[in-house]
Nucleic acid binder design. Structure first.
Lengths: 109, 109
DNA sequence: CCCATATTTAACCATCTGGTTGACGAACAT
DNA sequence: ATGTTCGTCAACCAGATGGTTAAATATGGG
């Protein structure tokens, strides 16, 4: 059903990949620049970027020789929604959903 | 840094474990009852429960022969906070919410 | 064309994962 | 005491994961 959650959560389960996402939060980056602060090969980083891309968490666009990596935070939405379902512990009934909705609605911007 | 995020996200990256959490949202359950709806061995479910326990997402308490599993939704807080750092995706829209609802419904076909 | 830069691919390796079956221990019931 | 139910443990397996190095594939610049 939601293979997306599988791949998103799996992608987030690695500290290197979370750090990459954090870096991309500041700005788009070329693959080489993403790799620079890590003490691992460029090939390893390239693999991590593939995993992040397949999870939809980043997108990559090639301009010339350089492939730019861009954060795609929308991909976190489903996962975030799933997790927030557990924030309202207690019942799983519609009341909880309504409270959830009510608490989210005003923040529409 | 936070090994916790590793284990929490890794625990969430499996559909069986997410379904177990969903079941526990309704009520505490014995291990055997957790395993019942799944088409896999009790031993396999037992392993999944260990992973969820180590991630802090559930707790287990033995009363007599029966080991009860209890959801610990607080463990999701750190992960949730981390994700909200990417909060460019503004809150939850109804579309996403409907998907959440659907995921909470008992499986059909 | 030749060379350097940017990135991926290929082959390999060690370890982790998710599943199996079967044996085991612990707690109850009769 | 014997057996049954509950759950874990041990050994095993196939496949995924995270890393390596070395070769290959663009692309851009003298």
């Amino acid at each position: 059903m939601s293979e997306t959650l599988d791949t998103v959560f799996a992608a987030l389960a690695d500290p290197t990949r979370r750090e990459i996402l954090r870096m991309l939060l500041e700005d788009d980056m070329a693959v080489t620049d993403v790799a620079e602060p890590f003490e691992m090969s460029l090939a390893a980083i390239s693999k991590h970027l593939v995993i992040l891309t397949r999870a939809g968490l980043i997108s990559q666009e090639k301009r010339g020789r350089v492939k730019w990596c861009k954060l795609e935070p929308d991909a976190l939405r489903d996962a975030s929604v799933w997790m927030q379902g557990f924030g309202q512990f207690e019942p799983v009934n519609l009341d909880a959903f309504e409270r959830f909705l009510a608490s989210e609605m005003p923040k529409q911007d």
